[in-house]
Design a protein around this nucleic acid. Structure first.
Lengths: 155, 155
DNA sequence: GTTGAAACACCCTCAAT
DNA sequence: ATTGAGGGTGTTTCAAC
């Protein structure tokens, strides 16, 4: 990691786990004064380590009870087609991630939606207007670990 | 969705996109007074819709430049074994998600780590001490969409 | 649901060390 | 790097409507 030391990592780890902490509390946890912490936070923001904060919602409580990983093989492998496909998928709010992957498949999407009928709707949206070779879903039966913090240390 | 109306959904959508907004700003966006918004937020927290806030960090800037989806087939399918395996995987900080899935594979893990050498280390950690039948990695060549907000509306 | 106000906590900046 | 302090902003809780 460039231009950061151990204390910076600890700061980043604390705030990535809880964005609601006051600067006073963060400072106490990492062993800095509130003033010194403020300057570090400002620097870390300017350097681009910090990308804003999000409130986490309970997906199940919102009725979003089904997670499906969608594997896609395409016939077209041009860069332009890929970007068009990305824009198309970006318009589907149930898609939480999209990766271009290597090997047997070309794309992998993570879909979080409302039951099988919700997935059916998403499936239709994904495939509409694009020439996809194979589309198959891997259904999550149980989310055992979800959305954990990044491994700020180590490495 | 239970016990929530359209305004609640709008509140949740606003705060899931930006946890740093003031109550005054949120209230203005959803068309409430700050006071009324405060009561709604408190209620939404009590009902469990809100699960706290996280600061988002730039993975690439932290050196976390490789995402791998690890597909695992096991020989043991008992509930106890699954829980032991979950605890084992939960101790590996590079694993950001873990799902028990149906079909050809048994588990799918999302790993975010530092290059191929980082993945090799994680691979060894995952497989140490557990009798896994097949372990294969799907490597993300490009993250096209990442960590998008939940689909609060729709459905 | 609303406005207004009071009490308090927090953020940001500056001065001094 | 630290403490201390001041002004501005945000949060929380009232009272009154």
């Amino acid at each position: 990691m460039n231009k950061t030391d151990e204390i910076d990592r600890r700061v980043l780890d604390v705030i990535q786990r809880d964005a609601a902490l006051s600067q006073r509390d963060i400072a106490e946890r990492v062993g800095l004064s509130q003033n010194a912490l403020w300057r570090r936070l400002k620097r870390l923001e300017e350097l681009g380590f910090i990308q804003g904060a999000r409130t986490r919602l309970d997906a199940a409580q919102l009725g979003l009870d089904l997670t499906v990983f969608v594997m896609i093989r395409t016939r077209n492998h041009s860069v332009d087609w890929a970007e068009e496909f990305r824009k198309h998928v970006a318009r589907i709010p149930e898609v939480s991630e999209m990766h271009r992957i290597g090997g047997e498949w070309d794309y992998m999407l993570k879909v979080v939606t409302r039951g099988m009928s919700g997935y059916d709707t998403v499936y239709r949206k994904i495939t509409t207007g694009f020439d996809l070779d194979v589309v198959t879903g891997l259904f999550s039966m149980e989310t055992m670990l979800d959305d954990r913090p990044l491994d700020v240390f180590g490495g």
